[in-house]
């Protein structure tokens, strides 16, 4: 015991060792361009299509908030799994992470999606939380978002005969706000997502 202690002290007291120890440097940590980090804002304008939320597989990892400058995606790093699907899904390139945007451009790929909303009529109380909170409804009908009165049938969701009804499923952007805010777990959104090659025009500018 005592001997080995002496051996240690002798080893570490050597000048060469001390020099090496103090002078050693590792290369600075650089994130390589192909590495996917948490998505960042590119500065492009968000149009509140909420494709990012829809594509995100991690619950609670991304939402889109209203700031004084307009809509803006917000990443919750604790939840984000850095899959990059939101970057791929965004039609306006608002987000970036690694070389995703670049490779999409080169490969001419995009994500294609559609949704199915199901309402469990036994559970639904017709409280209207989903229809009032729905961001799509909000854009269509201000009266709906200010307290649940439908002034048009162009809405995505609407309460009639005491239950929530899906009027225009094609308008759904898959953000799942309805699902998250249903107290009865009566509504759910299923997304069908696939990557497709789009040889011709850019479909998202329309």
């Amino acid at each position: 015991m005592a001997l080995s202690l002496v051996a240690y002290i002798r080893e570490f007291a050597r000048v060469e060792w001390a020099k090496k120890f103090l002078a050693a440097r590792t290369a600075p940590l650089v994130i390589p361009p192909y590495f996917r980090n948490y998505p960042e804002l590119t500065g492009k304008t968000c149009t509140h299509h909420l494709f990012c939320m829809m594509a995100c597989p991690a619950p609670g990892a991304i939402d889109v908030i209203r700031t004084p400058e307009g809509w803006q995606p917000r990443i919750h790093v604790g939840h984000c799994i850095r899959c990059g699907l939101c970057v791929e899904a965004c039609p306006n390139g608002v987000l970036s992470s690694g070389r995703i945007l670049e490779s999409m451009f080169l490969d001419n790929t995009r994500l294609s999606f559609s949704f199915a909303i199901t309402v469990d009529l036994d559970r639904c109380m017709g409280c209207g939380n989903c229809a009032v909170a729905c961001p799509v409804n909000k854009l269509i009908d201000a009266q709906m978002s200010h307290g649940g009165r439908a002034s048009t049938d162009d809405l995505l969701l609407k309460v009639s005969d005491g239950k929530c009804h899906v009027l225009h499923v094609e308008k759904c952007t898959g953000c799942k706000t309805c699902e998250h805010h249903c107290p009865n777990e009566a509504i759910s959104v299923a997304r069908l997502l696939e990557a497709v090659h789009s040889p011709e025009e850019e479909p998202w500018t329309s």
Binding site: A142, Q143, H146, G147, R149, S151
Partner: peptide
């Protein structure tokens, strides 16, 4: 009337 629809809780 628009203000009324959005901010009052009575029609």
């Amino acid at each position: 009337t628009k203000k009324f629809d959005q901010y009052y809780t009575v029609r």
